[in-house]
Every structure is written in structure tokens, then in C-alpha cells.
Nucleic acid binder design. Sequence first.
DNA 1: CGGTTCCTTTGCGATCGCGTGACGATCGCG
DNA 2: CGCGATCGTCACGCGATCGCAAAGGAACCG
Lengths: 237, 237
Amino acid sequence: MAAVPPRLLLVEDDDSIRTSLRWALEDEGYQVDEAVSGEDAVRQVAGSPPDLMIVDLMLGAMSGFEVIRQVRRTRDLPIIVVSARADTHDVVAALEAGADDYVTKPFEVKEVTARLRALRRRAGSGAGAERPAEVVLDADPAAPLVLRPDRGTVHRGEEQVHLTLTEFRMLCELAAAPGRVFSRQALLERVWEHGFFGDERLVDVHVRRLRTKVERDPGAPQLVVTVRGLGYRLDPR
Amino acid sequence: MAAVPPRLLLVEDDDSIRTSLRWALEDEGYQVDEAVSGEDAVRQVAGSPPDLMIVDLMLGAMSGFEVIRQVRRTRDLPIIVVSARADTHDVVAALEAGADDYVTKPFEVKEVTARLRALRRRAGSGAGAERPAEVVLDADPAAPLVLRPDRGTVHRGEEQVHLTLTEFRMLCELAAAPGRVFSRQALLERVWEHGFFGDERLVDVHVRRLRTKVERDPGAPQLVVTVRGLGYRLDPR
DNA sequence: CGGTTCCTTTGCGATCGCGTGACGATCGCG
DNA sequence: CGCGATCGTCACGCGATCGCAAAGGAACCG
């Protein structure tokens, strides 16, 4: 799944359902927090908002509808409702309140996790934070250096910096994990499709060409840094 | 709702269900297109992609699953499945194939429309599906270049610019994400229905033809820009 | 301080990617 | 049937880009 597991808040007062759901969800790679009442849920969301929620409609004092409305006032996270009532009015009301999906009990856990995945796919691809369209490599206030992977461009301030394909790919690769050292071998495998079976020194040449275009002072590289004996590393500023 | 009503493609082979759904959906403000088979649906999506889809799983030759997969290869629009089968395996399979929601027959129309709204809220807030009636590709004050996707026209000032179907589709695709690089492969999949299995260089030829009609100076293209090694990109001005 | 290893820089020929123009096949329409 | 419009394919040519090799430097080590 992700490097850092998504946090899911499970709002359910029935102990046995809560527990079985929790197990399945943890199997799916979620980090599960629990809430046993509406008030509890709202409090937890305010304190440390999760990435997703599963809400039972049948709660004590505060209804599930109210929980959803409260959460929606401040957060846009995916919410799935589970409920014993299959009545259309409840479904409509829950969705109107701001829920994203509605599952009736008894439900199979498999279905809930599948719906969660579908919802995450949809919510994540949109406004979400998946992959930035823009990476700032050098925050020079006068002329920042900006990489836009999906546009195939690099800009120094207003000016577009022209990179060759290899240079561009290499920069993207390095920018994917800023600060981490990439061995020449790793770069050859990742930048050159279908791998490459030649001299590792080739990387050096391209690094150099990249530097002349991207560094403030190519004579003293600060952005694409050499790590002697290991490889190269990107140091954004 | 929106100024221009959202277009919904209803894929359902049962006449009575299709008709009743259509009425309800039109009441909700959707412009409804219909498809009675999987092939029909895929063709319509390729030709003029709708904003949303409702797909019945039980179709003739091509299953609903296959329809979803085909559509998902190129489009990110919200898809709701309706099906007579309530089996969890089907639900999971449909969601895995790329559907966003799954409703079992018999269903209340109210519930479907409520789920549509919830889905649109989620999908619309993100990267977004607004289809502008007009896209200004070149803001030349004397003779602006304007693309009207839903009318199938392009104008340079008062003059209409005549494009072939392929050229027009290609321009629309590029205009759907201005600034983003499209690989030749991506363009072949999106512009040519049923995909295309020939030489990628075909794209070049059509780009060239498009340029002669659309660029101020076809000798030095500024609008449809080549990104060497990657593909093409639209740079509106 | 000298040797060694590793990195930088440079120049050049081979190759690749793209633009261009031309051609034949096909389709729709009068 | 004949015609024009459109499409897919191809070969050519040019410039951009790449891979390589070899000659400097720079950093490390005893």
C-alpha cells in the first residue's frame, strides 16, 4: 500500500462488529482507530483527523447523520456508512448528509474493503496529494528552479530550461527521493528503459551536462551533489 | 446544477428499466444518452465521452465488467453499476474493475440519484470534470483561436478553421489537460476508437496536419509543442 | 608527499527522433 | 461511376542527442 499506512476511524458501538471489521481492515493495511459514540468520533476527528471513516448510523445520543454533518463541516475525507436499515430514505439521507457510500448489515467485510479501495482511488486521484505536479528544486526568491514532471519542463524563474530526455528523466528520478543517494547502477536501471549495459561513467557525463543547465554555479555544484564512491544525490534548497 | 447539464450514459439492455431510469435522471437534470450493449457503450465513450455512466452488469456479448475495464483504460469518469446479483463476489469484482459504486436490483431510483450526487460531489471537487463550452487556445487580440468541443468547431477570429475528425479529437484531447505531455501511445488510445495497433509515428503526421491549420507559423509551432522523446503538449497563450 | 582511485571535462562520430513531402487506399457523396 | 476528402504508410534529411574514450583534476590513503 502506501509508505505510511492510511489511518481509518471506525465508529461503531457494537463490540463484535467493530472487532471483526478492525481485523479485516488491519489486514488490508489500514491503521485503525476506534470510536464508540458519536461524540467520541467528533472529538477524535477534531483532534487528529484520520484519512477515512466508517460510521455506523445506529449510535447512542448523537446519530450517525449528525456525526457525518459535523465532520463534513471541516473535513473532506471519504466516509462509508454501515447500517442495519436498508430503507431507501436512510440511504438518501446519509448520502445527503455527506456520506460517500452506504452498506447495509449484514455485510461481508470483503465488500466493505473493496468499496473503501474504490473510494480511496476516487478521492485520492482528485484534489489529493498523490504526486505533486510541481517540485521546487531551488527556492531562490529571485529565480526559483521548478520541475514539472507531467509537463516535461524545468523553469528557472520565468525562463524555461531546456533539458534533453535523459537529463530530464535523471532529474525526475533524483527528485523522487530528494536527499537520497542513487548509485550509478541504480540510475542506469531507472533512467534508461530496458536497462543499460555499458560503462557506468556514462552517468557522470549526463550529470555534468545536467549541472551546466541547472546549477547556479556549475563549477561548484550545490544541487546535484557528488557522493564520492557511492553516486549522486539531489539537495533541494 | 451546472450551466450545461451533465451528460450521463445509461448502459442497460432491459427496455423498461432503462426507460424508467431515464425519466428519473432527466428529472434530476441529466442529459441522458443510452446504450443497449457493451460494444455500443464503448463506442459511444470513445466518440463522445459522457460525464458519468450507469452500467448494467448483465449485458449480451460483452459483460459489464469488460465495459468498465475498457472505459477505465482511457477515462476517469464516475461509474455506477446496477445489477440483479447481490453476490459479494460480483460487487468486489465490479469495484476492482474500476466501478465507483454498486446497486442491486430491485432498486429505488431515488437511491441511485442520491448515490450519483454523492459521487459527483466527490469526483467533481477534484481534478474535475467541468467541460467548458469554449477553450481559448490563442488569445491573439486580432484573431483569437477558440475551440468549442461540444460544437465540433474551431475558429480563428471570425473564420471557421476546418479540421478533420482526427485532428479535432486530437486537439480536444490535448486541450483537456493543457500543458501536460501526452505520449504518442496515450493519444492513439484516446483519439482512435478501439485503440490502434500501427506505427506510433502516425501521430506525428496528424500533428503536422493539425499544425498547418492551427498554428500562426506552422514552421515554428508555438501551440502544439513537441517534447522530444516524450510526446506533444498544448501551450495555450 | 607520492601513489591511487575516483570524478570532471572535453571533443567527436554514430545514432535517433522528428519534420516533411509524396503516394496509394479508402470512404462518402453527388 | 467519378471526385474530393481523409487517412495510413513510407523514405529522406537534418539537427539534436547520445555513448564513448581519453586527458585532466580532485580527493583519499598510507
